[in-house]
Computed example of a mutant assay.
Amino acid sequence: MSTPITITRHQGLEALELVAPDGARATLLLHGAHLLSWVPAGADEQLYLSPKSAFATGQAVRGGVPVIFPQFAARGPLQRHGFARGKPWQLVSAEAGKDDALAVLRLNDDGATRMVWPHEFEAEISIRIAGRVLEMELACENRGATPMSFTAALHTYLRLTQYISASLQGLSGLAFWDSASDRAATQHEDLLRLDGEMDRIYQDLKHDLTLRDGDRRLRISQQGFSDAVVWNPGQAKGDALADMPEGGWKQMLCVEAAQVLRPIELPPGESWAGMQTLELT
């Protein structure tokens, strides 16, 4: 039997506090369908959220899991990272079951979106927590009469406790675009260690990744998304961010499930879905 989860408020914005029977917890804003927090059963916070984040209508939150749609970064004519993360999403359902907690939010086109992106669409995000697993699925349906093309990502900020020794495992052999140096390259080492600014789009991810941070191991998998973005602003750019404290860049690493290098092409009436799963092992 399921128990409905009611809307509360977090930092003045409408939010859902998901709690699974085993103690796993998550906080999800309706603003931007933005996941702020994920605490697995018997563990600590796994996401990074900047203490200087703005919680205001129309503004993006720094940290957690922003929803990037329908444009990644500045790769197109829209505002950076698209409009979805700054829009109010509608609650479809939220409930705690006997084994998990699940919330579904929806975003439809409106007059404001059609002014900048002339498409009729319905986007949904589903957030599920159970034990030490977080599942995030982003789906989109083309509800118009013409084809539409878009890029998207789940811009996941992972919390780091030991920046100097932290690494990401599983990228060996993958081609990537280095946005920091504006060049293409190939990853040769299996362990990617953090060393200054990093902004890479890895192509055709086939295997799970593992974040190694001290004794912590976080498995990262994805379906539907073909790219993985790995980003840390480094000291110069990180300390220059108005919504991140000095040194905050040492406490985070973005590992994003993304569709960037080959945009999604949706004919009328067709749907697409992509998922990222995090598991604390």
Rank of each mutant, 00 (worst) to 15 (best):
L134I: 00
G97P: 04
H34V: 15
G224T: 10
L105M: 05
A240T: 07
Q251A: 05
A257I: 10
L194H: 14
Q251R: 15
V116C: 02
A242T: 12
A185I: 00
M148N: 13
L16H: 12
E279C: 06
N142P: 10
D199H: 13
M148H: 11
D208E: 10
E270H: 13
H34F: 12
S50Q: 14
N232L: 03
I129C: 04
E246T: 13
L102M: 12
E17G: 14
A236P: 00
E189D: 10
T57H: 13
F72H: 08
E246V: 15
K98L: 07
I264P: 00
A26C: 09
L107Q: 15
A273C: 11
S181T: 07
S50G: 13
N108Q: 11
C254I: 09
A123V: 11
P88R: 13
E45I: 10
M148W: 11
S165K: 08
N108F: 01
V67P: 02
P4R: 13
T113M: 09
V65S: 01
A101W: 03
I127M: 05
F121P: 04
I164A: 15
Q222N: 04
G196W: 13
K237A: 11
G173R: 02
G131S: 05
F72S: 07
Q259C: 03
F150Q: 13
D100Q: 06
R212Y: 12
A103P: 06
R25Y: 00
A257Y: 06
P233M: 10
E124K: 15
M252P: 07
G196M: 14
L278N: 00
G238R: 03
L154S: 04
I220L: 03
F83G: 04
D190Q: 08
T6N: 02
L191F: 12
Q223M: 03
P51C: 06
G76E: 06
C140G: 00
Q79F: 04
Y202I: 12
Q169P: 01
V230N: 05
Q203V: 09
E120A: 05
L209I: 15
G32S: 14
C254A: 10
S50T: 15
G86Y: 00
I5R: 14
I129R: 07
Q59T: 14
A41D: 09
L134R: 00
L91Q: 04
E120V: 12
G97W: 03
L78N: 15
F72W: 11
D213R: 15
G82P: 03
T8C: 05
K237R: 13
V92E: 04
S37W: 12
Y202A: 08
L278A: 02
A123T: 11
G234P: 15
L211V: 04
A33T: 06
A103T: 08
I164Q: 15
Q187R: 15
S181H: 11
D110S: 06
R216V: 01
S93H: 09
Q187P: 05
P263H: 13
W89M: 00
F55M: 14
Q59E: 14
E137M: 02
G42C: 08
A180V: 12
F69L: 12
G97V: 14
Y163A: 10
L168H: 06
M244D: 03
K206V: 11
Q162I: 01
S93C: 07
E124N: 13
T161M: 05
S179Y: 08
L134S: 00
T151V: 02
G76P: 01
G144P: 01
R193G: 04
P51G: 09
D243S: 14
F176V: 02
V260I: 11
L49H: 10
I125L: 10
